[in-house]
Write a protein that binds this DNA or RNA. Structure first.
Lengths: 341, 341
DNA sequence: AAATAAATTGTAACCGGTTCCAATAAAGGT
DNA sequence: ACCTTTATTGGAACCGGTTACAATTTATTT
């Protein structure tokens, strides 16, 4: 109903100029204490809220940070978002959280929209970086920090955990456990996934002489995919007499896998051991607690936000390349087998 | 580096006025096809991105919708957010997702900030509505839709599921199953929780004559609380000879409860049956699949967004009160016992 | 009491767009 | 050839703030 009040209204009521009101609002310069109190009172009484839009337009600082994650429903990403949010909020910034839903076009669209909204910086877990938008961003001076991505360009700030190493230590567990057959399930076509596969093979290479059966399946992205994979191969798993370990390159796939195997009466981990990746919060308490590779998600988000804020406040700060070490977490789905070889 | 281009730059390059460029940008009025193409070409070449801030300032439409949920890490809320996002994106709006983290002060702070950012509308799962900010919002003309909340004021739009009814049908299962002892675990002090307790007692009232042991514990909010409750009462549960059913008024508490009971070797559901509330995505596949009350979260978010958009486009639309029916989902943690009484 | 410095406030331009209104040019009618 | 339409474009004010600069008032110094 009542039109929103502007700084002009307040100045009129107080009988001063807009400039003076603005000064009170920003504590920018000294204003006579009496006028000041009077203006504050009027602001209070009329519940005046200055427009951040107008402010951002002149100050060229919106205090908005754009955040793009790949999946809102995935606790891995929301945990990162929580880390970001806590850090940003502490510094008076507000987060514009959006989700690309693993859709490249939507990612482009969103980043563009954010850019137009004059965000002060961008935090993103990119699906892919060789795209027009990223080229555009590079040319612009918008501070950007990539998360969960490996650096391809020394000018880019990134915060990520080491996916190659993570997959390596995961694979090592499977090899050390002496499973005859070791299967790797790769998900979304993504740099992260490629790194993990690379790490997996790096470790596999060390066991080349050992006469193992090594298989890689790709395109296993979701819990459903994991479930279906298990169902589709259930007969096979029931017939084999050798031991088998499966490295699902993300926890959701591992969940589906466990469900599918159990539904098909293939015992986990006795017949088939399952190892996940990410250690999302539910992994610890899954029906069969999941062995997996832990990433410190909240911290990752927090560090990314810190890095971004530094870049914002110091434009010629050089880009950092922050790599966090992942950790193997051993639970029931793939225990550590103590064999003396 | 290079300062962001403005409409003035483009107009200069094209040798026309800002007005003409603006017209091309907005398809608002007819512009000569030749000029038009020329301007578009120049925009393209220089990768000009108009500032939404400036645009919003004049148009008084930011195309930003503020969304406040209570917990980013809780799939219940993020699922709602996904529903919202899908609907908003379809309509050219962008979502400003924030989390109050169950903190009343932060909720105030966030809503204020959003308001100042000239959001076109607000979607919120409020912790509490009798606060200064909400009074302020009521006086302002900002379209607001409350989610997951029961209407207290006929002018407020709300979209929620019926928590009283949900708890009633949940409680009914426990009574029908003839558990001698029935425990209700209430979480966060929140209208939703109160409604659920009310529904629980409504059903309990119908069984007043039946000589049951009915207990209510409050302040059980998180998975940890549920876990600790189970541990603390494990000895009791082991000693009782009668049957017992626990209604955890949210799924997380139920998860913790199940874990705690299992860790203390109390069998679920044989010794103690557990019923949750919300049916978050993990409930279906928990180590013991959880019986719970289902709420259509994605749909709830979508409907809330629809309602909000309607309000935005038609300022004197009257407020709706959309109540979605919850459903009982029976799984293993609290099966349906077929007793002939 | 005059000169100078400090404190306080106002004026006006600007941020990057949109849009009303007027101006000009081209086209159509008689 | 002159008048009226219509199409296209430009000028300038405006959205709601900020800020450099100037102006005015008040205090301090000598």
């Amino acid at each position: 109903m009542d039109r929103k009040l502007t700084i002009a209204d307040i100045s009129r009521i107080a009988g001063v100029s807009k400039a003076t009101v603005s000064r009170v609002l920003n504590n920018s310069e000294k204003v006579n204490e009496v006028t000041r109190q009077n203006i504050l009172k009027i602001i209070e009484e009329n519940n005046y809220q200055p427009s951040n839009l107008a402010r951002a337009l002149t100050k060229k600082r919106s205090h908005i940070i754009g955040v793009v994650i790949e999946d809102l429903a995935n606790p891995f990403f929301t945990e990162i978002a929580r880390g970001i949010e806590s850090e940003l909020h502490k510094n008076g910034y507000i987060m514009f959280l959006t989700s690309s839903n693993w859709d490249r076009d939507k990612e482009q669209d969103i980043v563009n929209k954010l850019y137009r909204h004059q965000i002060d910086g961008l935090l993103i877990t990119p699906i892919e970086t060789e795209t027009p938008v990223f080229k555009m961003l590079k040319k612009s001076s918008l501070p950007v920090v990539l998360m969960n991505y490996r650096r391809s360009d020394p000018d880019q700030s990134i915060v990520s955990s080491d996916n190659i190493k993570g997959a390596e230590i995961g694979a090592k567990l499977l090899f050390d456990n002496q499973y005859r057959e070791i299967i790797c399930l790769k998900g979304f076509e993504h740099q992260t996934a490629n790194d993990r596969v690379e790490g997996f093979y790096k470790e596999a290479e060390r066991h080349r002489e050992e006469n193992r059966i090594i298989k890689l399946f790709t395109g296993i992205n979701t819990r459903e995919d994991g479930y279906n994979f298990a169902k589709d191969h259930a007969d096979y798993f029931r017939t084999i007499i050798h031991s088998c370990g499966i490295f699902a390159l993300n926890d959701f796939v591992a969940f589906g896998l466990i469900d599918g195997l159990l539904d098909a009466s293939v015992s986990v981990p006795d017949k088939v051991a399952v190892l996940g990746y990410d250690d999302i919060s539910f992994s610890e308490r899954y029906r069969i607690p999941l062995s997996t590779i832990h990433q410190p998600k909240f911290r990752l988000g927090k560090m990314a936000a810190e890095e971004l804020l530094e870049k914002i406040n110091n434009r010629n700060k050089k880009a950092s390349n922050i790599i966090i070490d992942p950790e193997l977490v051993i639970r029931e789905s793939c225990p550590l087998i103590n064999n003396n070889r």
